[in-house]
């Protein structure tokens, strides 16, 4: 009797322990799949199941990354790439925000501008690449403009929709409280449209990054995209991988930055956060 009870207790304790051990912190869960893939990949490379020119091992890529970092080549290329992406994003995103606000505020500007902008939007911005090269040459200008063109539309559309989505009932409140025109914008419309605008910023950043890759792959003498093209010609596959990984990491970092901004600026929101 006594031993049975003890065993049961013991068993209960064990299940409790197992349950505790299974509780993985949220941020760790994201690492699970990549680590398994890396392990299998490294094994396949080391056992020479795959040729190194087709798929270099993770360690070879890491080594190449180290060499590029030490020589300063990587930093120089990244600097140029980031400057291009940032320039294009600021230009396109800034104009998108401006036009989104203008069109969002006035029915008149909407009927004049929106149809043309919507028509331009449906043209894949990568399809106008040859035209941009023809007009603006091979140097920085064409690249920045290509990125700006892509970054324009997500911010434009989301700012416009955000402003039009402001609750009409709150406009009544603004009228009763005699808000000035300026306060109507700063205290009502922009805060209400902010979730939408930030979503536009995130999407625009993604597209700016995409535009950058295309612009640099199509012809340039510096930048991460150039580094990739250059390495490809010499079959330095591990260098190609370094470039790709850099694109991925920087892209993810900028996205995380905007999400952090969202959490800070939109802490008043009480919306569904997803289930576990």
């Amino acid at each position: 009797m006594k031993t049975a009870a003890f065993a049961e207790l013991n068993g209960r304790e064990k299940t409790a322990k197992v349950r505790k051990a299974r509780k993985v912190p949220g941020w760790l869960k994201g690492f699970f799949v990549p680590i398994i893939i890396l392990a299998v990949w490294q094994y396949a490379g080391s056992a020479e199941l795959i040729s190194a020119t087709v798929l270099p091992t993770p360690l070879a890529i890491l080594l190449s990354f180290y060499e590029l970092a030490v020589s300063g080549e990587l930093a120089a290329n990244m600097q140029i790439s980031i400057a291009r992406a940032a320039g294009g994003f600021l230009l396109g995103g800034g104009l998108g925000l401006l036009f989104g606000i203008l069109v969002g505020f006035s029915k008149k500007t909407e009927s004049y501008l929106d149809p043309s902008l919507q028509m331009l939007r449906t043209v894949p911005h990568l399809a106008v690449t040859p035209l941009f090269i023809l007009w603006f040459g091979f140097d920085e200008l064409s690249k920045v403009l290509l990125i700006a063109l892509g970054a324009f539309f997500p911010i434009y559309i989301n700012t416009f929709l955000g402003i039009r989505g402001v609750d009409a009932k709150l406009f009544d409140v603004a009228r009763v409280l005699e808000f000035s025109w300026r306060h109507q914008i700063t205290r009502l419309i922009l805060p209400a449209a902010l979730p939408s605008i930030l979503l536009g910023v995130r999407l625009s950043l993604g597209i700016a990054w995409l535009g950058l890759v295309v612009a640099e792959l199509m012809g340039s003498s510096a930048g991460v995209g150039y580094m990739i093209m250059d390495a490809r010609q010499f079959s330095q596959t591990e260098k190609v991988f370094v470039g790709i990984i850099i694109f991925a990491v920087v892209g993810k970092l900028t996205d995380s930055f905007v999400r952090l901004l969202e959490r800070k600026l939109l802490k008043w929101r009480s919306s569904f956060q997803g289930t576990n």
């Binding site: 409140v173 409280l177 205290r187 008043w268």
Partner: peptide, 18 residues
């Protein structure tokens, strides 16, 4: 409408971001 005629709506209509 104006501030000398204060108005309370059926719903509170507060600004959620403030």
């Amino acid at each position: 409408p104006g501030i000398s005629q204060g108005f309370i709506f059926q719903e509170h209509r507060l600004f959620p971001w403030l």
